[in-house]
């Protein structure tokens, strides 16, 4: 019991000494290769989650006898996806998927919608989180009079778009326009009006 108390005091003291946690702990540089022989750091300090002061988690696995120093309560080290990012309707982040997207759009223009959809789906397997691909897919579904799926693909594109950034507003407007057109075509006039209003917000 006294050990515990001493440790608690020690932790408190260390915590007090530490600089006020103003910045998130930067995760170590990634090498771009995640699988395979990942060696967790022995001390646990490099990767250790700087958990909040709340809860019990930060002291998990602490071993007082080995002089383990509990991590300073600090902001979570969760890497947040960038809030701002640029968006281009021709870019997926994977060059091969870009090529499929381009080709798919050509198919679409020629009215070869099934081929276009093939291309987009194949590209989605390469770049599964690209809003550009879902938007293109939504347009093709609309052209195929597959309204429900057109709406859903547009929704998915919306969910994958970054919060803000170059071109994001245009993409939102685009997605809402597809939704409006699909709703109108399937007889949902009021829904179409609402979607059009949403689209106008982003113009």
């Amino acid at each position: 019991m006294w050990n515990k108390l001493t440790l608690a005091m020690l932790v408190m003291w260390l915590g007090g000494c530490a600089v006020a946690p103003t910045s998130t702990v930067e995760p170590p540089q990634r090498t771009g290769n995640h699988q395979g022989a990942y060696e967790p750091s022995r001390s646990g300090s490099v990767y250790s989650t700087r958990d909040s002061g709340y809860g019990s988690t930060s002291t998990q696995g602490s071993q007082p006898s080995t002089g383990y120093v509990a991590p300073t309560p600090a902001p979570s080290s969760v890497r947040k996806a960038p809030v701002t990012a640029s968006y281009s309707e021709n870019s997926t982040g994977v060059s091969a998927a870009d090529a499929l997207l381009r080709e798919g759009k050509t198919y679409h223009q020629r009215g070869q919608y099934a081929n276009a959809a093939n291309n987009f789906e194949r590209a989605i397997r390469m770049a599964p989180r690209s809003p550009a691909l879902y938007l293109a897919m939504a347009k093709t579904r609309l052209a195929l009079n597959d309204y429900n799926n057109a709406i859903q693909m547009a929704n998915r594109a919306l969910s994958l778009l970054p919060s803000e950034g170059w071109g994001v507003s245009d993409a939102r407007a685009d997605a809402w326009t597809i939704i409006a057109d699909s709703r109108a075509a399937s007889g949902d006039r009021r829904g179409a009006e609402e979607a059009r209003a949403r689209a106008r917000e982003y113009w």
Binding site: L7, A8, M12, G15, G53, G55, S56, T57, T59
Partner: peptide, 9 residues
């Protein structure tokens, strides 16, 4: 912090 660290332990 005191309260929570202690409780955590």
């Amino acid at each position: 912090r005191l309260f929570n660290w202690f409780r955590g332990l």
